[in-house]
Write a protein that binds this DNA or RNA. Structure first.
Lengths: 123, 123
DNA sequence: TCAATAGTTCAATAAACGTTGAACATAGGG
DNA sequence: CCCTATGTTCAACGTTTATTGAACTATTGA
């Protein structure tokens, strides 16, 4: 069925929505994991986050992240590949994403974030 | 009645709570206004925000901002003077507050934030 | 072609949220 | 001493939120 799901344009990205999206622990963990993945310039798909919650709940959080402009979803067969909208976010809110991610990294224990090595999949 | 209201310690300040607090447009406007006031190193009291909402609703938002560690309230007579917890926030989440405030400033129109000159009270 | 895989949709639920107004508390100035 | 100004508390409300499980769709590989 569904072609490419809806994404807001860069200009449509709103600060309060982005902050609200990042304020949920599960979504923050997703964003953090996507940020780690940026370093090896590959994408992650839904299944890579199964540790965080159930599938239907993740679908809900992915939709929020997409609709507020934090991430981009690309449909490929039965998979949906996701990555951060790094360029758009840095253009709209310079330094914000990095500050959030490095703050999250400092509190990784408290936030129960996965360690880096666990994120990058072995291939 | 109430002596100094409760504030979390620096270490108790949590990233998701801070982001959630900043995601509300009224609270973001309050924080923005407090940030402008930092420049003249003075404080603001509740009444200075009456343009944003009704008094009891502001009390509610002030409590949220206090409890999540974003601001400090000092009781003086019948007034409550407030300021950002700049040092604590910069220590816990380096760059975050500045990124949020400058992002808000860029979107001042959209977010309906008061202009700088209106914030600093004439004396 | 069939079965397994990957993910979505939908309805239901409980909790948290933002907003309002009325009643209350407290301090300071005439 | 009272009156006013400043701000809080409380209950009520309608809305939005996160979470769950069951049913569903669609693609792929054997």
């Amino acid at each position: 069925m569904s072609r490419t799901p809806h994404h807001p344009t860069r200009e449509q990205i709103e600060l309060p929505m982005v902050l609200d999206c990042l304020s949920d622990p599960i979504r923050l963990a997703i964003v953090y994991q996507l940020a780690q993945q940026e370093r090896v310039s590959s994408e992650l798909c839904c299944g890579d986050f199964n540790g965080l919650s159930g599938k239907s709940n993740l679908t809900y959080h992915f939709a929020k992240l997409r609709e507020c402009g934090l991430m981009l979803t690309r449909v490929a067969g039965t998979n949906r590949f996701m990555r951060l909208r790094r360029e758009d976010l840095d253009a709209r809110f310079p330094g914000l994403l990095d500050a959030v991610i490095s703050s999250a990294a400092r509190d990784a224990d408290r936030l129960q974030l996965v360690a880096e090595c666990e994120v990058v999949k072995a291939e």
